Simulated assay, not measured.
Amino acid sequence: MRLHARIGIGFGIPQAGQLFVTPQGTFGNNVDLRTQRNTGVDLGAELTLGDDLKAEVTGYQEWFRNELVSQSAGVNLQTYTSNVPRSRHRGIEIGLDWRPLPAALPGARVQASYSYNDQYYTDFRERLTAGPTSVVLDRAGNAIPGVIPTFVNARVGYDHPAGGLAGLGAFGEVTYRQRYFIDNANLLRVPGITLVNLNLHYDPLRGDGWWSRLSLFASVQNLFDRTYIGSASIVSDGIAAGSGVPNGEAVLRSATGSIYAGQPRTVYAGVKSRF
């Protein structure tokens, strides 16, 4: 059993261009920007039982101060940079590496990982502009967009350890990604997805001549050919010109250029060589 505790401190210095656009959106003095800082701590434990079991769990929390964020000052004005006073990141990570039947099936292996991320603003005001109208909205308590809250991966495999089939192995894995927000108002989410992958490989033991330098593999990604969003860029929120009323989810859904498709069922096969 091993216990650990860590603390880390980070700094982010404003770039030169950010120092010379004022909060009014004009060129001028903005040298009052503060250095971005963050302090993080994590506590964890790791358990190892011979070569058969390794498990670990870690919890963490991180505090950001004066995060550097760009905002619009209004129509026909320059984008300026200001400090977001506070945000917080916290979560937990769990890992497992287990050989369930070391005597009967020494090559069998189960691996799994789980992570939970809760990242949100604790003090943040966002300025939105449409036509001559400009409003400031309080985002305190909202989730930071682009952060996947829950991610799970589980893999079951077998690699033959000795004999004529030494190096022959296969595994199947399941990956789950929870839905997550992609805008500061937390109106629009990317749907969650569960994917299944398969792999077959052959890595001969080293020292058996030229053949031992080769590695053969074949894999199937997205076995069930699920349609899903591979990644997405952050969507900007907006307001109605004149009234200043924030746009709803239906308006945000009409935004284009932010969604990137995940790969369909894909088969890979190949040979690698060591020199």
Rank of each mutant, 00 (worst) to 15 (best):
R6N: 14
G10C: 07
A16Q: 13
V21I: 15
P23Q: 08
N29P: 06
N30T: 06
N38I: 00
T39R: 06
L47I: 14
Y60S: 10
N66S: 13
S70K: 11
T79F: 14
V84T: 14
S87C: 08
R88V: 14
R90D: 06
G91D: 06
G91V: 07
I94S: 06
G95I: 05
W98G: 03
A103L: 04
S115P: 03
N117Q: 12
N117T: 14
T122C: 00
G131M: 12
P132W: 02
S134K: 02
L137S: 01
R139G: 01
N142A: 04
V147M: 13
V147N: 11
V152P: 02
A154E: 01
V156G: 11
A166Q: 13
A166D: 07
L168N: 03
R179K: 15
Y180M: 09
F181S: 12
D183F: 02
D183L: 04
N184Q: 15
L188E: 02
R189Q: 15
R189L: 04
R189W: 05
P191M: 07
V196T: 12
L198H: 02
D203W: 02
Q221E: 14
F224R: 00
S231A: 14
A232G: 00
A240P: 01
A240L: 13
A241H: 03
T256K: 13
T256S: 13
R265L: 07
T266I: 07
